[in-house]
């Protein structure tokens, strides 16, 4: 279930000054292009599942609203069911009582899925280092981007979304099982 996703090495974009990637006419050209196109489409149409628990929810509401507006990134339209969403934004503290719920909802999401740890409580437990709080959601689910802050300013959240978009763009997107 948690098998690492295969990723292509981070190669400089074709035509950039950074690398000398010879254009070899192999089948890789098609898979690379497919990954770029699918990555482009996926990164600009993120359907978040806002798993909101605590104070970070206030900044989540702010970043989704008019002044900061995640809709510019295609990431505003929440789907409150894991079946239809692809980004789980874990916003706020996750306690041990909430952990089974978080895990279950993560398992109910379909591939491809990403997880964002929004705020320090989701990242590492925050300053609640005690019996009640899970010390970071990456103990129970894999996390793709961590956004620090208590709570993070909306600009930080947007920075995190953009970094996630870069990550999605670089990923290898499996459309069909097996080699294509």
């Amino acid at each position: 279930m948690n098998a690492p996703r295969a990723t292509i090495p981070i190669a400089p974009a074709a035509g950039s000054a950074g690398g000398a990637v010879a254009k070899v006419p192999t089948f890789d050209v098609f898979t690379t292009r497919k990954d770029e196109i699918v990555g482009w489409a996926r990164k600009f149409s993120i359907f978040p599942y806002p798993f909101v628990t605590a104070c970070c929810g206030m900044e989540f509401m702010s970043v989704s609203s008019t002044i900061y507006d995640t809709d510019r990134f295609g990431a505003a339209l929440p789907r409150f069911t894991p079946r239809q969403s692809d980004l789980m934004m874990v916003v706020g503290t996750i306690t041990h009582k909430q952990a089974p719920v978080l895990r279950r909802i993560y398992e109910q999401m379909c591939e491809p899925k990403w997880v964002m740890a929004f705020g320090v409580c989701a990242t590492s437990g925050g300053f609640y280092d005690n019996y009640a709080v899970l010390q970071g959601i990456d103990l129970i689910i894999p996390v793709d981007v961590y956004i620090p802050g208590c709570p993070p300013r909306p600009e930080t959240v947007i920075d995190g979304i953009m970094q996630l978009q870069d990550k999605i763009a670089r990923q290898h997107h499996v459309i069909l099982k097996g080699e294509f």
Binding site: A99, N130, Y131, L139, I140
Partner: peptide
């Protein structure tokens, strides 16, 4: 006499992840 750091997790931690 209850230690503040004594956690009782409900969900087992992922494989390969070091406990806090």
């Amino acid at each position: 006499d209850y230690d503040i750091h004594h956690e009782q997790p409900l969900v087992p931690y992922r494989d390969g992840v070091a406990p806090p």
